[in-house]
């Protein structure tokens, strides 16, 4: 259930850790008029320091592993991770490749993660994932 009113706008920082762009264009599709999540105050921001949610796409290539970690550290608490797409969850079609360090879980152990499976997931699914993350953050705030 979505609460009637949210206390604040949810800001998302999007990181591509070596994805195929499929998930990334669906994230942007979720922001543009057909799905238009901006009306709820959900928007992409340009810096992890402003973000509540980090949306990761991609299987995390070796080059990106340290950057992914650093971005997580730069995001202020409370924060959650939204893993969009199967390849960030398990490696997806790229599993077993020699140039992967992922999935995300392995790079940042113990982080609070929400998963949106699909290759790529539909914008509706991404929105649902964001809302799950949002509910979690509201819960944290209450405590």
């Amino acid at each position: 259930m979505i609460p009637k009113a949210f206390k604040r706008a949810l800001w998302v920082f999007h990181v591509n850790s070596g994805s195929c762009n499929g998930c990334d264009i669906e994230i942007i599709a979720a922001l543009t008029p057909r799905y238009d999540v901006e009306r709820f105050g959900i928007r992409l921001v340009g810096s992890p320091r402003h973000a509540d949610v980090i949306a990761f796409t991609g299987p995390v290539t070796s080059d990106m592993a340290d950057k992914v970690k650093r971005i997580y550290e730069q995001t202020p608490d409370p924060k959650v991770i939204l893993v969009v797409g199967s390849c960030g969850i398990s490696g997806g079609v790229f599993h077993e490749s020699y140039h992967l360090e992922g999935p995300i879980e392995k790079i940042i152990p113990g982080a609070k993660c929400f998963y949106v499976p699909g290759c790529p997931p539909r914008p509706e699914a991404i929105i649902q994932g964001v809302i799950k993350a949002w509910e979690f953050l509201e819960g944290v705030e209450k405590k």
Binding site: G18, M64, C87, F94, E96, Y98
Partner: peptide, 25 residues
């Protein structure tokens, strides 16, 4: 940064039909 070893997967793990779906990605 975006190197995922796709060609290697196509030559070492996937049968040619699976490689179609891999090449999609």
């Amino acid at each position: 940064q975006n190197h995922r070893g796709i060609e290697w997967i196509g030559m070492n793990r996937n049968n040619p039909v699976q490689s179609i779906y891999l090449s999609e990605r």
